[in-house]
Amino acid sequence: MIEVSCRLVRPRFVLDANFTAASGCVALFGPSGSGKSTIVRLLAGLERPERGRIVMEGRTLVDTEARIDVPVHKRRVGLVFQDGQLLPHLSVRQNLDYGRSFAPRDARGVPFDAVVDLLGVGHLLKARPATLSGGERQRVSIGRALLAAPRLLVMDEPLASLDAARKLEILPFIERLRDEWALPIVYVSHAVEEVARLANTVVRMSGGRVVAAGAPGDVIGAAVPDTGGETYPRLSFVSAKVVRERPEFSVVILTHPAGEIVLPGSGFREGDAVRVAIAATNVALATEEPRGLSVRTRLKGRVAGIDHGEGPSVHVTVELAGGDRIVALLTRLAVADLGLKVGRDVFALVKAVAIDETAVGTLRRNQAAR
């Protein structure tokens, strides 16, 4: 459990943030300048609030009324930044050992070999940072933070400088830290796909304040505009299970009570439980089961709500067989021509190529397949 209630005043910026989040991966989400990195600095002890309290896993780090302010080196907060910040004159092994030197002697840290194995950097131990790819540098940076035996891992925009391929390389490692090692993570990002994939809890920031906090489907599944003028696509979250792989087509097939879901990519095993985030702009609706159509994902459901408005488009919410909901962004003309209304049976259609692979996360790995 992480509890934050802090006020910090700086020229042209005031942070007044309050939230409580269960352990797992807590995402601080919002546009640049919303206060995400300031909270990171408060958690790490690099800033001190004028007023407030920070509690991590039952341990009070800051309480201005009680005059508690745990020093940086005693907080055991591991930091991973956007650029990795590796020491250029040291090898990968030496950078990892540098992180291990910060672990308290009595701490039950993660063994060196286990970290190397988890992050797949064994073949890089003699290399210097300048020879590494962006994804490799970030893996080493994560390893260095882990070897310091942190109680909390804080990742501040760790994938922002990486391309899509390198992001897909790193995301599974972060999922394993969250699930297999049960390490509490605070993940900072303004990338909705990363947050949708990794977070158990999302804290949405705007103008130095928390505007929403809760499960991903409740916080980034709703089209809440930010006061900074930034909006994000409305997302739906659908949970399904991998039933088979089609490597010859580079796709996997998921089963859901409403129908099959076809996903691009690999890395999933039969039996894996998967959460898929789908943007409303990538969903079409049909009132009859379509035939002779290239779209492979066709999910049965019933219209549960229509957000009526005066603009050209509206959000239509469909309750799928099995209980999940999916939202489609349609023109008001299409809603009228199809005669859509609450209670009408429909099929939600999603193109596989429209699904962002970075927004597809494993909820539970099939251990038997290992």
Rank of each mutant, 00 (worst) to 15 (best):
R178E: 01
A212H: 11
V203K: 02
E180H: 12
D179G: 00
Y187V: 00
T201P: 06
L153W: 02
E194A: 03
E157K: 09
V192F: 11
S206G: 09
R204M: 14
A149V: 13
V188H: 08
R176F: 04
R166T: 15
R204C: 07
S161F: 01
S206F: 09
V211W: 06
E194D: 04
A182K: 14
L147C: 14
I174C: 12
L146H: 14
V210C: 04
R204I: 00
E194C: 03
P150K: 09
H190Q: 08
L159V: 11
L147F: 10
A191H: 13
E193I: 15
L168K: 07
P184S: 10
D163C: 04
A149Y: 12
V154F: 13
E157I: 07
P150A: 12
A212K: 14
D179A: 08
A212E: 12
A149L: 12
L198I: 04
D163R: 04
A148C: 12
D156G: 13
V186Y: 00
F173W: 09
A149C: 14
I185P: 06
E193A: 15
A160G: 14
L171H: 01
E194R: 10
R197W: 10
E194T: 04
P158F: 04
L153G: 02
A148V: 10
P184N: 11
E157F: 08
A191I: 04
E175G: 06
R209D: 05
L146F: 12
A149Q: 11
I185V: 15
R151Y: 10
L146V: 15
E180R: 15
D163G: 02
D163K: 03
E157W: 07
G207T: 15
L171Q: 08
A164V: 13
R166A: 15
L152G: 08
V211K: 11
D163L: 03
W181M: 15
R144S: 06
